[in-house]
Amino acid sequence: MTDRRSRRDLICRAAVELAAEGGNHAVTHQAIDARLGLARGSTSYYYRTRKALLDATITHLTDRSRADFTGVVPPEPPRTPEAAADAIARYLDMLVTRRRVDVLARYALVSDALGENDLRVGLASCLFSVDAARDLMDGLGAADPEAAARDLVSLCEGLAFDLTCGHRSLGDIDPRRDLEVAVRRWIVALLEPR
């Protein structure tokens, strides 16, 4: 743990875990020091203020999302609604299973971000990218790729919430099977001229 980047990554990961487990108030410099077994004040050395810590944590979530997204979506963007729905459903499934802690942390940090515009912007785009959605919708032939991208991101946001905290999280349906169908329906609808 002598590498500064590694220590910063560990601190950000601990902040994510604390937020997911205990909400935004659980994310403190002291709690992170305790969680990682660091000397008191270590986290403050790397991130002097809570805002700096939250900014780094949101950047950490964004970086993980971008890396995971490129791992799920093929290098060539999908060119059919079915292929796009499959890629998006796989990404959402990965978010709410393997990265569930990250999704829960994001929701926990919302109240901190509301009063800080740069945190709000970072948090709003840390799991889903309007730019990537615009490229996808443009490649699929959407009449208005920008508007379709915003709507697609809103759909993905809603599905992520539903899968972690809503009805789909209750386990009474098979979310993976229904997810691709729902996403495909929306993509087809978004491709229609407004």
Rank of each mutant, 00 (worst) to 15 (best):
D3A: 11
R4Q: 15
R5V: 15
R7Y: 06
R8C: 03
R8T: 03
D9E: 13
I11H: 00
C12P: 05
A15I: 05
A15F: 01
E17F: 06
E21H: 10
H25T: 11
V27H: 02
T28W: 08
Q30Y: 09
I32V: 12
A34Q: 14
G37F: 03
A39K: 14
A39W: 06
R40F: 15
G41L: 03
G41W: 04
Y45N: 06
R48G: 08
R48H: 09
R50F: 05
L53I: 09
L53P: 04
I58K: 00
T59D: 14
H60S: 08
R66P: 00
D68G: 11
V73G: 01
P74G: 12
P77N: 13
P78W: 02
P78D: 02
P81Y: 10
P81M: 05
A85D: 10
A89T: 01
R90I: 07
Y91M: 09
L92T: 04
L92Q: 10
D93P: 00
D93M: 00
T97D: 13
R98C: 03
R99D: 04
R100Y: 01
R106K: 10
L114T: 15
E116G: 11
V121C: 10
L123W: 00
C126Y: 00
L127S: 07
F128V: 05
V130Q: 02
L136G: 01
M137Q: 00
D138K: 12
A142M: 11
D144H: 12
E146Q: 15
A148P: 01
R150S: 01
R150M: 05
L152M: 10
V153D: 01
G158R: 08
F161K: 03
F161Q: 03
D162Q: 14
T164R: 07
T164F: 02
G166N: 06
G171I: 03
R177G: 02
R177T: 14
D178G: 14
E180N: 09
V181D: 10
A182G: 10
V183P: 00
R185W: 09
W186F: 14
I187A: 07
V188Y: 09
A189S: 15
L190D: 00
E192I: 11
E192Y: 13
R194I: 08
